[in-house]
Design a protein around this nucleic acid. Structure first.
Length: 108
DNA sequence: CTTATGACTTTCA
DNA sequence: CTGAAAGCCATAA
């Protein structure tokens, strides 16, 4: 079942410690699909309502450490707010946000 | 069933 | 080193 993959992604994202961030590729690799980074993003995009409150999707970003959210339902401002609230230093890059992966990337 | 798109990553030129 | 293209998995039309 493909849903199993989603559950894995959600579980992994939930396991991300506060004040840390993870990349799609990392989550995808841990989920079992090293090349399923896009699916991770999609998984979070179709994230169920109740899960949206439980899964820290804001801690999941792209390989560059930049928030690529193009969805209006997931405003980057909100991510920045949450991340900063959790103690993650978010740098403002023009219209995007950049996070120091070297310092805040979740290391297994 | 085939084509197109997407919160991405990696590799080739 | 920088830029462009292909790849991968799943969902939507």
């Amino acid at each position: 079942m493909t849903r199993n993959f989603y559950q894995r992604v959600y579980a992994l994202v939930k396991k991300i410690p506060t004040g840390k961030v993870a990349t799609y590729g990392q989550i995808a690799a841990l989920a079992g699909s090293p090349r399923g980074a896009r699916m991770v993003g999609w998984a979070l995009h179709v994230l169920p309502e109740p899960e949206t409150k439980k899964v820290p999707w804001q801690r999941v970003i792209n390989r560059k450490g930049i928030i690529s959210t193009t969805c209006s339902d997931h405003p980057k401002d909100l991510q920045k707010m949450i991340l900063e609230s959790e103690g993650v230093e978010v740098k403002t890059k023009e219209d995007l946000f950049w996070i120091d992966l070297d310092k805040y990337q979740w290391k297994t």
